[in-house]
Design a protein around this nucleic acid. Structure first.
Length: 309
DNA sequence: GCGACAG
DNA sequence: ATCTTGTCGC
């Protein structure tokens, strides 16, 4: 009877989850492991994946998980899979992965079995990577469990390690004048946790990019830039569209026919002229301390309990 | 008690 | 995350 709907999972569950995060965190590789990641034009990169989970409005359980794969640099959808799922874990800030990752993992494994040739070389994940309470956000979590390079792409700043969406932060955002402008997110601990990135000329609100797995922050930001026709990078945006559309269909709701009047002519992503950008101008001294760490092997995967209900 | 709160 | 309608600018 006494559901913890209002209070969230018990302390015991959070404790287990924290231990699981700490265990998996040891496997995160926060540097480039692929040759294309170091190439200025990302030559060698052909497929970029995106994942997302959308929710059914009045329902706290039903949701749709989607995985899409886009060609690079064209950014055309070459694969998409959506699946209705029943969520078991509640959303708790800092533990998003325990809610979403199991289903995303299934989608990746299904692709691995049925269309291995379409396996993405990197995944853009809705949420944070190392920019996280314990340095292990959903992008790290999915990265370690799939062993795919992953990038964390968050739409809001997770206020962690002294990072605050305060007046100073907002002022820095105001200084991001054009597409590609960015500034580092330096935590109190002295670590660069991620970058705030203006991903599009027509969007004031930045993205918060952080390392997920097997990719440097520099490459992560550069790749994100190359994937942005709009504010949200295409892989994530397409995954979002797919999952919402799938929910509509499954609910038998009226869907938008084809809202395209003129010939579909879409913006190009990758800016060519400037490869560098205006980060850190007129700001406190910011040095790059990558702190490369190696990680042995993925290890075994166990379920860290779904015993809060 | 107050404030924060990725998705 | 989810919902909503209009409004503004090119």
């Amino acid at each position: 009877m006494a559901l913890e709907a209002a209070g969230g999972p018990p302390e015991e569950t959070l404790s287990l989850w924290k231990r699981e995060q700490a265990r998996l965190k040891a496997h995160v590789v926060d540097r480039d492991t692929e040759t294309w990641q170091r190439d200025p034009a990302f030559s060698g990169l052909q497929r970029v994946g995106g994942v997302d989970v959308s929710f059914v409005k009045g329902d706290s359980v039903r949701a749709c998980a989607s995985l899409v794969v886009l060609s690079f640099p064209e950014l055309e959808v070459v694969y998409e899979e959506s699946r209705m799922v029943s969520l078991t874990a509640p959303y708790v800030s800092g533990f998003l992965a325990f809610r979403e990752v199991p289903f995303l993992l299934e989608l990746v494994q299904q692709l691995r079995e049925k269309e291995p040739g379409l396996m993405p070389q990197v995944l853009l994940v809705d949420g944070n990577g190392v920019l996280h309470h314990r340095g292990f956000g959903v992008a790290c979590h999915l990265g370690v469990l799939t062993d795919l390079p992953c990038v964390g792409v968050a739409k809001k700043l997770l206020q962690v390690d002294g990072l605050e969406n305060n007046a100073l932060h907002k002022e820095k955002i105001r200084l991001l004048q054009t597409q590609g402008d960015s500034f580092p997110l330096l935590g109190d601990s002295g670590t660069v946790l991620g970058m705030a990135l203006r991903s599009h000329d027509r969007s004031t609100r930045p993205l918060y990019i952080s390392v997920g797995h097997r990719m440097s922050l520099e490459a992560a930001v550069r790749l994100t830039r190359c994937c942005c026709r709009f504010r949200i990078p295409e892989p994530v945006r397409q995954a979002d569209i797919c999952s919402r559309e799938h929910i509509r269909k499954s609910l038998g709701l009226p869907g938008p026919p084809t809202p395209r009047s003129p010939k579909a002519q879409r913006p190009v992503a990758c800016p060519k002229g400037d490869s560098g950008e205006s980060s850190g101008e007129g700001q406190p001294p910011q040095d790059h301390s990558p702190g490369p760490r190696t990680a042995p092997r993925p290890g075994s995967q166990e379920q860290a309990g779904k015993d809060w209900q």
